[in-house]
């Protein structure tokens, strides 16, 4: 049995160290062959876990809400894995991963596994390794896998492609309803949560969000997402929100939306792997690294334009393939 096969088997047996090491193997990408055979070994066991995404601006209370949700799910005897993503420094590559600070009371609970993940330069609000890390937790039998994104702005929407449902957490005081009208992150919430509901402006924000979501209704097939009000620190509105989430999951399971969403996810994954692999082998065959310097000179001195140069090179490459 290879090391990776053994690791996969230990993940299936819910061995904590093996789960943690598998995620590191995926994150570090020091050995992509090992990573791929691990994920191959896990593939047939995936698909049981329900995957939530929780996203919103920095300081909206994502971790604190998550802490409450974990508590409720544990009372129902469900096991929960959390992937909490925080940004890496663009300068040093280091990171402070502090999300679990707010969930640390679950640290000694065997039914909860929290893994902090640095974005390592990946844009989109999650890390490059997040999608595959979900599969590790799924294989290990966790009932719920919850992804907490980095604090997002307007365009970090990748969590939509990873989760069965997305909770978008908003707080009062970040702008008027024009902000809520804009494209991007406001469009990816399946359920909206207005946290810090005790603050001034929370009710107004709820009305504005509902108004904007109402405008959307006529132009899309999606029905209007529910808007919940919570206060994570005061532990208010959590049970109501949880029942909204449960109803939503039941609905999308019944009407085929969940399956469609998961197929979408697979399609995106296949496209992503295909383009990464094609890219890598094309780079290798075109020998880009060693030729780049002379190409830069040619383009700089206007001997050739970028499109003309690369169309010619790629044409030559494809011809060569055909002749083989």
């Amino acid at each position: 049995m290879t090391i990776v096969q053994k690791l996969a088997q230990q993940v299936l047996q819910q061995n904590t160290r093996a789960i943690a090491r598998s995620i590191s193997l995926i994150e570090n990408e020091t050995d992509s062959a090992q990573k791929e055979s691990l994920l191959d070994a896990l593939h047939s066991y995936c698909g049981r876990a329900v995957v939530w995404g929780i996203t919103g601006p920095p300081g909206a209370g994502k971790s604190s809400l998550l802490d409450r949700f974990i508590g409720r799910l544990r009372r129902l005897n469900k096991t929960v894995a959390v992937i909490a993503v925080d940004p890496s420094s663009p300068f040093s590559g280091g990171a402070i991963l502090g999300d679990r600070l707010r969930m640390q009371k679950h640290a000694t609970d065997d039914g909860v596994f929290i893994r902090s993940m640095a974005s390592r330069g990946h844009l989109g609000g999650v890390a490059g390794a997040t999608a595959d890390a979900i599969k590790v937790f799924d294989t290990a039998g966790f009932d719920f896998v919850i992804i907490e994104t980095i604090g997002v702005g307007q365009t970090e929407i990748e969590v939509m492609e990873l989760a069965d449902l997305v909770l978008l957490v908003l707080v009062p005081g970040l702008g008027d309803e024009i902000q809520a009208l804009k494209a991007g992150v406001m469009e990816i919430g399946d359920i909206f949560i207005i946290n810090k509901k005790d603050l001034d402006g929370a009710n107004r924000l709820k009305r504005e969000v509902e108004y904007v979501l109402g405008l959307q209704e006529n132009c899309t097939a999606k029905s209007t997402p529910p808007v919940c009000m919570t206060s994570a620190t005061r532990d208010e509105g959590i049970d109501d929100t949880l029942s909204v989430i449960t109803d939503y999951l039941e609905k999308i399971r019944g009407n085929g939306q969940l399956a469609a969403r998961r197929k979408d996810r697979i399609e995106k994954e296949l496209r992503h792997i295909a383009s990464a692999k094609i890219m890598a082998s094309a780079e290798h065959f075109l020998n880009i690294d060693s030729r780049l310097d002379s190409w830069v000179e040619d383009v700089f001195h206007k001997k050739v334009s970028p499109y003309k140069l690369l169309n010619r090179k790629i044409g030559e490459f494809l011809k060569e393939l055909h002749w083989q």
Binding site: T16, R17, I19, A20, R21, I23, S24, S88, G94, A95, I96, L97, G98, R100, L101, Q104, A107, T108, F113, I114, R115, S116, A118
Partner: peptide
């Protein structure tokens, strides 16, 4: 480095579990 910060008042048990989960 990637630094995981868990805050004050941690039991040795919680520290060790966190360290293992975070690899």
């Amino acid at each position: 480095y990637e630094v995981i910060y868990t805050g004050i008042r941690q039991t040795p048990e919680a520290i060790v579990k966190t360290a293992i989960q975070e690899d």
